[in-house]
Computed example of a mutant assay.
Amino acid sequence: MTWKNYETIMRVIEPLIGAGHSLRHFDYTHSAALQPGTVERLRNDYSVRLAYTEWGSPSLPPLLCLGGIANSARRFDYLARTLSRHHHVLCLDWAGRGRSGWLAEQSDYSFEGNVAQVLALIRHKRLGPVTLLGSSLGGSVAMRVAAEAPDLVDRLILNDIGPFIPTERRRRRAESVARHYVFRHPAQLFHRTGAAQKNDGPVDDTVLLHNSFHQTRWSEENGGRVYRHDIRALQCYRDGAAQDHDQWDDWQRIDCPVLLVHGMMSDALQDATIARMMDKPRVTVLHVPDVGHTPTLSDPLHIDALRRWIAVPGALAADSVIGWSAGADRLLFR
């Protein structure tokens, strides 16, 4: 396959998958308090344009989706397109990822900065209490928002993430993403996609192609496609991955219903963590077999389960397993 073939395929796929969304931007002010790597006398508030996708009518209940460390907002297209019939869905591109602007210094890419970006989007859209859905890093940020601003969050969906992530897992992930990759031929992109997504379960490769397309962009200076993010953001994450991630204090303060989606092959969400989380009332766990960290949330069965839980948090059993839809048989890259 050539890049010309690749572009032809994507021009057919993308209008179908992304139909119904609008790409929006807003000005986020990155405060001086979130600039630890800058000499204090030189710190000043500055603005960055952040991108988000918007689906459905603003009159519907809001659902805000937050991706992982290297994800783009378009990763949620399958989920957002379906749920936009019942919800006003917004999906955020973190600063330095997707179609958002970049921060001034590597050290500005902090966890606290991610929390500030979520609160800024909620204020910008003047949203009432929202359902927060977070995958990996997005789930960690969502827990902090729910703990510190409980009046803004009425439901919490955590996609394969809990209040504890062991250091070794964080290091492995950080080392794999904090590198500059150049894909000069589609085969190289497919190889990397297949290696990174080998534990994504029986997902049709249209999903994987869609996700990798929006996670990368053409770079004329590199003569190929590169990841659509500021490598400094991922290097900052790597620098902070030298210790366990512990949010049990945040978890204790969360008082809204929680749905925990568990990829049963995950190395990030441990059984002991799940058991401790289930000690809290109003926590529902949905186990997904044959998949690792952060299920893609593109399967109709999984999307429908999330829709039913958002409508009625007691609609699902407190601890259950859900399978996959039949027919994901175009497995080209793995």
Rank of each mutant, 00 (worst) to 15 (best):
D239Q: 05
W251C: 00
D267F: 09
M264R: 13
Q252E: 14
Q243H: 14
I254A: 10
Q243K: 10
R238D: 00
R253G: 01
D246T: 05
P257E: 12
D250G: 01
Q247M: 04
D239P: 00
D249R: 04
H262L: 11
V258T: 12
Y237S: 04
D249G: 03
V258D: 14
Y237T: 00
W251G: 00
W251P: 00
M264P: 08
L260G: 03
G240P: 00
Y237V: 02
V261R: 02
Y237L: 05
A241V: 00
D255Q: 11
A242W: 11
A242D: 13
A268S: 10
Q243E: 12
L260E: 05
I254F: 15
M264K: 10
P257W: 10
V261I: 14
A268T: 14
G263A: 08
D255C: 06
D244C: 08
Y237G: 03
D249V: 00
Q270E: 15
W248T: 01
D267K: 15
A241D: 02
Y237I: 00
L259P: 01
Q247A: 04
D267G: 10
D249Y: 05
Q270M: 15
L260I: 10
D249A: 06
V258M: 15
L269I: 13
W248A: 06
L260P: 01
L269Q: 08
M265N: 11
L259Q: 03
W251Y: 13
H262V: 08
D255V: 07
I254T: 09
D244K: 12
A242Q: 14
D267A: 11
H262N: 07
V261D: 09
C236V: 00
W248F: 07
W251Q: 04
L260A: 03
A242L: 09
D267L: 14
A241N: 03
V261L: 10
L269V: 09
H245S: 12
R238W: 01
Q252C: 01
Q243G: 05
